[in-house]
Design a protein around this nucleic acid. Sequence first.
DNA 1: TATTGTAAGTTTGTCGACAATCAGATGATC
DNA 2: GATCATCTGATTGTCGACAAACTTACAATA
Lengths: 267, 267
Amino acid sequence: MSERNSGTGGLASARQVGRLAPVRRTSTVDLIAERLREAVVDGSLPPGAVLGEAELAFQLGVSRGPLREAMQRLTAEGLLVIPRRRGLAVRTMTPEDVRDIHWLRARIEPELGRRILARPAAERRTVLAELGAEVKRMQKALRRDDARALGDAYLDFHRALAAWGGSERLARMMGTLLIETRLCTFSMYEHFEVHRDLVSEHVAFVAALAAEDAARFTALIEAHLDAEVRRLLAEPEAAKEDDADRLLAETPDEPQPLDRLDLPEGL
Amino acid sequence: MSERNSGTGGLASARQVGRLAPVRRTSTVDLIAERLREAVVDGSLPPGAVLGEAELAFQLGVSRGPLREAMQRLTAEGLLVIPRRRGLAVRTMTPEDVRDIHWLRARIEPELGRRILARPAAERRTVLAELGAEVKRMQKALRRDDARALGDAYLDFHRALAAWGGSERLARMMGTLLIETRLCTFSMYEHFEVHRDLVSEHVAFVAALAAEDAARFTALIEAHLDAEVRRLLAEPEAAKEDDADRLLAETPDEPQPLDRLDLPEGL
DNA sequence: TATTGTAAGTTTGTCGACAATCAGATGATC
DNA sequence: GATCATCTGATTGTCGACAAACTTACAATA
């Protein structure tokens, strides 16, 4: 994931000599780190759980050396803590962490939207199609009442946002922030849980991007992340007036089931 | 650095039983990582340099195991790259990195200022005193024409900003961003180099904070970071109008030598 | 002369082992 | 009965070693 692989723009003719994309050789430590991240995301390593190195290394089929290196990597990313002489533990997020993570996302994600809007129209359509597809996954998951699938689609939506709108650095940072967001959920609730408004909020994101309205996209993102923080910390939904509700109310459509709000045409 | 140590609010009586601050037991990996960061900051490990593990481990007096773990940590922080089977190399920053890093700082640092201004007046005075002291170090360094000392004071100024204005997470992130800023300098210039306007810009930062003018502080920070990017990338200083110059011109003082601009009274 | 094949040397990637350390439990003492 | 000391079992932190992989240099061939 850290090797430089992007930057070789569109390549048409396959028989052209040279200009082959470099093979992606990934080290064992990378693989272990990725596996651990997955385990954190899907909840098989719940926050606070204390694991022993030997056991974990055996499960992964590697020796303790590479595992310890991967642990250090995840520690630097803020996903793991290494209590002295107690193996490793998935980090438990505090309310302050919840606020910080969402605050950071609220600074970054609007910029991702702006950069996507600054792309050529053809690419922009591709991006919107992909984002729309993720929203559809969210809608399907909501209809099936599958919170896990909904959360996964949520993650992929924002990952796509970062992949298309960010530099390599920004995308990597967003990737970490998104995993940490998931950790916030695990840390605050006992079970996996997402809020039902999630889907309509994301429909509005795509609509704002389709309308090339960066300001509205920014406002929507900020309102969404604000709302997420309140939901996670179980603070009163709206002190005086809920920005998210107000913004969504601007959508001129007549009332529809939340999970079936229309995406912009063509998506 | 990752141990939870904050959160034990003001503690007055020293003879009180219990309530001792936990001893900071730092692991070998932590020490190695810190040593490597220092080496990156002071330039003894220049960007692009390729080091062998065995040699480095011998210099540090540890075996290769802990060193490799520390390398992974620095890699996750974005300071090192690990080319396959080629030891380790200090990352060389690209122009895109320069822009990203400064863009991120421009999102974070204004918030640090706001949080400092939100503190009680007594604490705020302490913070201003510390920031003022760093600016004085910068002025002294400028008078001695000591670019290295100037750069170090610059780093410490912004570290103090993060320490007083940030959560633990924000402070850690700013710490990494600042080291990366230093790496930008090393990557772009052959020798260590800082711009002379640095000092007057920082005098203005402190003045804005002393005046509790968050908006002005934000504008100054953004102008400073913009200017830094242009200096680093050697882009034309001012396309049409330089925000930094305009903002600084608002200072009502009569012209003074740049290295002697008055700090707000009492600092 | 340019290019390919071969070989040697160096360095990494990985593993196994050892010793120091710590947590938990049991027993002794005031 | 509560607190402290001791013991033990288990786990980590660290090191040394081995084999595989890669780079570099050199030689052979077209």
